[in-house]
Design a protein around this nucleic acid. Structure first.
Lengths: 126, 126
DNA sequence: CCTTACCTTTACGTTAACGTAAACTATTTG
DNA sequence: CAAATAGTTTACGTTAACGTAAAGGTAAGG
């Protein structure tokens, strides 16, 4: 039954209120209102969290909305479900590619680092 | 001793020639010239590959340039090397965060998928 | 020699994801 | 009660990463 103000969320996740409102403009968030003022539920907070995770993974906001909507079952018909499964598979492929990229980059970074350290040993003594 | 034309690379990596020239404008690539025409070396090709990997990971082109330059040793002094090690550590932190994000997203996708399939079984029979 | 296929530079256009500022309202606090 | 604090809408501005179009150079082939 938790409630959050826009500035609370903005501080918790280190984004501006403008950013949060922007997500609402794009229909990624739809908080309740008390009068004019936005009131965010626990579910809203989770959605924001998912959006930001998507961002870290380089997803567009549109993509994030689609993915997040996957988690919400209900009112979808059979055709939609089949399309969802396809979309999920596509996402999985992309993520596995990213996993691959990351392990390679980490390997490269390790290599670069030991080169650096090596170079410091040899070179840093003069 | 391999050489590549801009359109060859464009086809191999499925990007436009405009994109490749754009990377040159931002000093991420510096191919040789034969007359006016760009001639890409094997090393240039690798750089392009690394740039595109960075893109898939959501890096900015500026970040990519910095990271790629880490791999090239040589003319760096001790202070630069120390800064490089710091930068490498920062990158590693970010990548580990991404790894975490990805495993979580994959878990979510698996969950969403089995929900879908379940829903198809129950719901798809009428 | 003319068309086709690549290559070039220059320069303005576009999209996503916000930033920033203005102008206003409502509530709390010294 | 005045000022500070937090909220609102509206709307124009900005940056990154190219897209797109114009105008032209060069070399091979029928």
């Amino acid at each position: 039954m938790a409630e959050y103000s826009i500035s609370q969320l903005s501080k918790e996740f280190d984004v501006t209120t403008r950013t949060i409102r922007h997500y609402e403009e794009l229909d990624l968030l739809m908080p309740a209102r008390r009068g004019q003022t936005r009131v965010y539920s626990a579910a809203d907070r989770i959605r924001l969290k998912l959006i930001l995770r998507g961002k870290r993974l380089g997803l567009s906001l549109d993509d994030s909305r689609d993915i997040i909507d996957m988690y919400e079952p209900g009112k979808t018909n059979v055709d939609q479900l089949k399309k969802l499964i396809d979309a999920i598979q596509a996402q999985r492929t992309k993520l596995n590619q990213q996993l691959d990229d990351i392990t390679n980059l980490l390997k490269d970074l390790n290599q670069a680092e030991s080169d650096c350290i090596e170079s410091l040993k040899t070179n840093g003594q003069k």
